[in-house]
Write a protein that binds this DNA or RNA. Structure first.
Lengths: 225, 225
DNA sequence: AACTCAGTTGATGATTTTATGAAACGGAGA
DNA sequence: TCTCCGTTTCATAAAATCATCAACTGAGTT
């Protein structure tokens, strides 16, 4: 049974969605704002998040962005008709779909079904090992990285290092863990070797180099803004 | 029942196409931009893709190019009137048809029907699955390879190696997997044997030798630019 | 402002990995 | 047995990648 998190400040909306979703057999949890949504997501994993754009405390976009830092849970955004449609795209942060309020619960449920079906299938396959963030695409199976449609060539060490970081996106990775993971626990080489490879990665990634954040005194983190 | 993927950033357009397509008995899925289209295509196979040219995140051409790397799904491109240049460009990238916006849904559906019928037929004819990329033709059933119309003779090992690579086009294949697949898991011979056969393959393939990409420290990958 | 420590960068010779040509091998058929 | 041909091995060449070093930068501290 799939678990859904509904995030909206309006009680009525949450109730409507809950009613329909439970009728469809989903397990539903609620959050009243983005802040709470993030907290809940840290503790628990959902199959889908339905999130309003306009909310007190923390809006849907920011919450989406934050959650995407550590979870790949599909997200359906809800937005009022007035809120520019273009805006949604402008801020498109990997939400899987969006629905304009006022929405027909039936239509929403159809989308929910579609998204869940899609992601459930892909998890089964597990073969389709791909990470995407804006124009950055990392295909673990093909061992390729593309930036805005252009293939980026990388050396073996770059791949290993980068893939490891992307697989652990949003996590602080210590220099030690990076080195022992990519070079092997028995690497006793120069301390600066890691830095050099980080440099090469950044060079390869172009505009996405800022996704590799230096954690002074600790190591690095790959994050999706 | 044929499955169609509709890729357009405008909800209205998607709705219209969905409505008509479902009326015709097709199963429809949607994507809002090129990036999403690629992701969905990785997970699922469609009989046809209808894709807008102008989209945020990743335009239709780039998406088309990307999808063609791992799928041969026919594609119909949509573009606003006046984007004449695109027409040429689109066909070059292997889109199967082209419709100018604003289009008559009826006309679009006729084209959809035509393309699907065409590819369905050719798939029947080529029941004994063949792979083609430009002037390269690999007939798995007939066990033949032709380059620009000229038959290329290959030895058994070459066939096995090449066929395995083509069947897994776009995937990184490790030396180990290649060897155990083609030579058997119990092959204890020289490490360089694989290299030699790759060399022979490349020699046979002429201009298409560049489709066999060396993945340093890993193995090889067969890819269609 | 000077200091210090951590991280960044570019250059380079050493090392690793792959490509290649030639030779050896070995089984099937003449 | 001999020859042919696909296959494998091997030695060497060529290429790509890496580790290392030294100088540099820049943020945080004193």
């Amino acid at each position: 049974m799939s678990k859904i998190l509904v995030v909206d400040d309006e009680y009525r909306i949450r109730q409507i969605i809950r009613k329909y979703a439970e009728f469809e057999g989903y397990e539903v949890e609620e959050a009243v704002d983005g802040m709470q949504a993030i907290e809940i997501c840290r503790k628990k994993e959902f199959d889908l998040i339905i999130m309003d754009v306009m909310m007190p405390e923390l809006d849907g976009f920011s919450a989406c962005r934050e959650i995407r830092k550590f979870r790949d849970t599909p997200i359906i955004m809800l937005s009022a008709r007035g809120e520019e449609y273009d805006k949604i795209h402008g801020f498109e942060l990997g939400s899987d779909d969006y629905v304009v309020k006022p929405f027909s619960p039936k239509e929403l449920m159809m989308r929910v079904g579609a998204v869940i079906k899609r992601t459930a299938k892909s998890e089964d396959a597990a073969k389709n090992d791909v990470f995407t963030y804006k124009g950055l695409e990392v295909d673990f199976a093909a061992r390729t990285v593309t930036v805005d449609g252009n293939r980026v060539e990388m050396t073996p060490k770059e791949y290993e290092l980068f893939f490891y970081m992307v697989r652990n996106k949003g996590l602080a990775l210590t220099r030690e863990s990076l080195i022992s993971e990519v070079w092997g626990y028995d690497f006793f080489g120069d301390e600066r070797t890691l830095d050099t490879h980080i440099k090469l990665l950044r060079k390869s990634l172009g505009e996405y180099s800022k996704c590799i954040v230096t954690l002074r005194g600790v190591g690095y983190r790959f994050e999706t803004v």
